[in-house]
Write a protein that binds this DNA or RNA. Structure first.
Lengths: 258, 258
DNA sequence: GCATTTATGATTGACTTCGATCGGATGTGT
DNA sequence: ACACATCCGATCGAAGTCAATCATAAATGC
């Protein structure tokens, strides 16, 4: 009625297309309020647009047809965290001198470092991570996998055999990941067997570097994997609180922010 | 009906995909908290995604399906006599008793056996083959990877560290592959380091089973990996000459034709 | 003007999703 | 080999969502 408030269907469709383009996923209830129409109308619209192949309907809403994982929005979000990890990995890479023996722990942050290391043929890599080994399986530096029992969830090698092998090795530098760093400096992870392996590595490396993005500070997981006093360097993305900086100083840990 | 706090299944699925993509492995309990849903819901999601072939469920979580399990040279070889190798693997599987410790050598023939072993949870598998380990990484029996240096071409672990680990282990049965069996009974392979590892395993297994299709008889590769006198059983596809049967008898090797 | 067409909103019963619970299966540690 | 902890899958009730039907209102055609 009147002149201004009434909108044509085609106009509404364009607004739906727009929302779908930027948000990739839309909810019926949401769009109802935003467009000021009833759910029935909106459903009819979505039905129409689906028939034209412009979107795909799902329970509770609709998704863009080309919402493959590699599409912009998701890539942005995933890439955002990935870029942090990438920068941390790059900083880690710069700390490795030629000819060194490098230990790589399991964990997604360290996995990025493994990928970076493919260009460094001048070092020797030792790891208990099957995923890291797979990264380096195609090309890269000499790679040694420690032995041990395969832990399915983490895809790492742990257990007594791992310790037995680690006892025969030592490292110039070890890069470790963690699930959490508690305020008292305890490094924790979810898997006891893995925690034990981590702690054992700490004692066999000349220099220990912990790779931990912001989200790890204050988090506490189940099993103790060592203490920050055994760590020499922490590489973190920016934005660490003054409180945590103070704590790191207390534990004589060098902080590297990227 | 709240406002926008409710999330669509698709959104959650995408977050799961995202986590799986960056972390390769996810835990049910972890994802529950991160996504703010019950374990039941998450299980349903994982079930759904597994049905679509987007991931693989394991006890306690899920792992990404590894699409790049295909190495050019290797896969070609595997494809050549695929059916023969499959039949050989099946025959090999039947020789494994419950509770045994099984060693799997590198090589495409043995890799088929690893695949078959995914259904056998009643044994322990030890291997120096990264590919075999990857085969068993998703589900299967307890798996132990020996340590050692990663040899890129064959994707196996070899070298002094491997021998060091093998010294601490012994096996009820060992399944070995080979590049060739010479008329005088020498088992050969192309890579000395690998040959050395093979020969070392022969001495640590109660029973040695050689998996060798027809094409291996009479072939001679560079490095000696042992002698047929150390082998207890050979599993081969049909069509072995009388001459070779006679030789196998000489070396006291039991011949199994499939 | 009156009937027809089109767009929209409300109602209702069926369906889907979700979370809690429980018995049973699966690993884990001693 | 045993006991213990954890994890799994099935079931059920509650809540949200869907699709179909009917009613209303504006636009169109005669």
């Amino acid at each position: 009625m009147g002149s201004s408030s009434k909108t044509l269907p085609v106009e509404r469709w364009n607004r739906i297309r727009e929302a779908l383009k930027t948000e990739r996923v839309v909810r019926v209830v949401d769009l109802c309020r935003r467009l000021g129409v009833s759910s029935a109308t909106l459903r009819r619209d979505l039905e129409e647009l689906e028939a034209r192949g412009e979107l795909h309907r799902v329970h509770g809403g609709a998704v863009a047809v080309d919402s493959r994982l590699d599409e912009p929005v998701f890539e942005d979000k995933a890439e955002m965290a990935a870029r942090e990890k990438h920068r941390i990995a790059e900083a880690a890479l710069r700390r490795i001198a030629s000819g060194w023996t490098v230990y790589l722990d399991g964990g997604s942050t360290v996995l990025n470092l493994a990928r970076e290391l493919r260009t460094r043929k001048d070092v020797v890599v030792v790891t208990n991570s099957l995923r890291a080994a797979m990264e380096l399986a195609g090309e890269g530096p000499r790679t040694i996998l420690v032995g041990g029992e395969l832990r399915r969830l983490s895809q790492t090698l742990v257990g007594p055999l791992t310790r037995y092998v680690l006892d025969a090795l030592q490292f110039d530098i070890a890069f470790m990941g963690t699930m959490g760093i508690s305020p008292d400096g305890t490094i924790t992870t979810t898997e006891p067997a893995e925690a034990f392996t981590k702690e054992w590595v700490l004692g066999r490396a000349h220099q220990v570097v912990l790779l931990a993005d912001r989200s790890k500070y204050g988090k506490v997981a189940f099993a103790r994997a060592g203490h920050m006093k055994d760590v020499d360097v922490v590489i973190t993305d920016r934005g660490l609180s003054a409180e945590w900086r103070r704590r790191l100083r207390t534990w004589s840990v060098q902080l590297v922010e990227v």
